[in-house]
Design a protein around this nucleic acid. Structure first.
Lengths: 141, 141
DNA sequence: ATCAGTGCAAAGGATTTGCATTACA
DNA sequence: TGTAATGCAAATCCTTTGCACTGAT
């Protein structure tokens, strides 16, 4: 199943409509795997879809498991496409803003274990470690 | 060393001043270990310290390691006092908003391992798992 | 034919900032 | 004394919303 099909199905199940605007948004999101904020997405869509519609569509994309919010950068929410990409977490440099992605299956497993322990059904999770990247540590010293 | 002393020292090292307002804020934060947002803190301080000053002081408290931002709730940043409290992470129910705290030493250790691997010097980290709590799972079914 | 979705512009709400004044160090 | 901090109010900036119109199912 493609991401677009997935979204279409999700909308159908909820009795919502698959509009041209929503199609453009999903297509754009799936074609890139970088981090993006709303403004960036808006420009990538060449302003063919209004900001209001983007803001109204993002929650649906989250619910359907196509994107997730990874972090906040100066008040702005930053998302990433999740479809077809292995889950990973982030190291965020508080000096230069660089983001390093990493995967650790063991951490994932332990999280699942914790959820079971509390009878909690996880939907989305986010692990962000803020600190100084290698380069910025040097600069400071 | 108490939290207040720690903050005082931090300010001194940075050439900043320890004012009555900052003292009130630290005292208040240390006396509670719950989660709090800016508005709540403002009211706890009985409005003796202005919102502007609170907003200007919070980053300093973060840098000095006394508090950390744990999550965002409808746009509002939520913090918690970290001083003298073991690190923990959160399960956040997306239906009722309940927050369950948990500690897992093994996850912490793995995070340190990841940081070493990337030569990254961690300052603060945050693991939040969103999903359905036990009660809300029942309600939905 | 309906009911949800869209764009626009206005509203909202948290956070930041300019400025004159105050007060630590 | 000199520099940073405070409070106030205005300004920002991201995000949400009301409304009249459009369009997917």
């Amino acid at each position: 199943m493609t991401g677009i099909e997935r979204f279409r199905l999700f909308l159908k199940e909820k009795g919502l409509k698959f509009t041209p605007e929503r199609r453009k948004i999903v297509e754009e999101i799936i074609s890139f795997h970088d981090h993006f904020d709303v403004e960036t997405l808006y420009h990538r869509l060449k302003r063919k879809v209004s900001l209001a519609t983007i803001y109204r569509t993002l929650p649906l994309l989250r619910e359907s498991g196509l994107i997730r919010e990874v972090l906040r950068c100066q008040g702005r929410a930053v998302f990433e496409s999740v479809w077809g990409h292995p889950h990973h977490d982030h190291l965020i440099c508080i000096v230069c803003g660089k983001v390093i992605e990493f995967e650790d299956e063991r951490i994932e497993k332990l999280q699942e274990e914790v959820c079971r322990k509390f009878g909690f059904q996880p939907v989305e999770h986010r692990l962000g470690i803020k600190g100084y990247c290698k380069e910025c540590q040097r600069k400071i010293k």
